[in-house]
Amino acid sequence: MPNAFPFAAIVGQDEMKQALILTAIDPGIGGVLVFGDRGTGKSTAVRALAALLPPIEMVAGCPVNAPTLADSPDWAGLTEDRRESRPTPVIDLPLGVTEDRVTGALDIERALTRGELAFQPGLLARANRGYLYIDEVNLLEDHIVDLLLDVAQTGENVVEREGLSIRHPARFVLVGSGNPEEGELRPQLLDRFGLSVEVASPAEIDARVEVIRRRDDYDRDPAAFCAAWAETQAALQARILAARARLRGLDAPDAALRDCAALCLALGADGLRGELTLLRAARALAAYDGAEGVGRAQIRAVAPSALRHRLRRDPLDESGSTARVARVLDEVFG
């Protein structure tokens, strides 16, 4: 997308930006779910990601963006190992999309005109090594949601239909956004997202004015606006790259593991996915912060995003999940 609104120019919404940056540092954290009212910059932030993330190296013409020729699936029929650099894919999944377009299907034209069985890759192939974005995720049809979750979990798309038997890697970060007024998400689906964020429009007039002013400047002259923000944007990108490099060498002390476990226990979060995500997110944040190791500061900063959607619903607790996480954080960490 030429001249998307620069990520660095988004005013406020720190938690959402933090969550997206963390998945850029460590895609293994899992997806991000952004819930909030209309007009709070959800879509803007996700669409800005592509321009922020460093480009990926891939085999030229590979439909699944494979890094080497060996990783490129046979059906792509590539023989020449020529590399090219492309922006990180951020693929929009439109509502009302058919299963065929998501998983890929028979290439109708080739089947008809040449009588060949050929596979036409779908959105999952294009999203490999990047992001798959679903706006209004709570309005997506159930069978598509199930399919996406399955692929996101296994990292592989398997198509067994219409006489085709195709598999290809599909590792992507699932980003969903939605408006809680349109309906809740099923708990099973909530749990699969690594991080969840709640966004609201800024309450202070100054921040709101700044949002409007920047958007206005951008609308009038996107190219000039992006140029003005290029330096900040580049600095942010460099910081993400540095964090990626640092991530591997970063250790999590026993105390940090203990903290994560204590938090999840106190909150009664189901399963161990909460602990794992909490730890990974805290480690990514430590890398981003340039910290020596994972400490309480990082755990505290990511705990709301990593845990708020994993709590059991307590019918008598009217305070939101965010307040509950904050309360338990104070209890456990003192």
């Binding site: 009212d37 209309r38 007009g39 709070t40 910059g41 609201a200 429009s201 007039i205 709101r208 949002v211 409007i212 958007r215 206005d216 609308d219």
Partner: peptide, 14 residues
Amino acid sequence: AAAALGIDSLRPPQ
């Protein structure tokens, strides 16, 4: 003005 009218979203002012 948008804030005084209780409009939360930032699209209407734009």
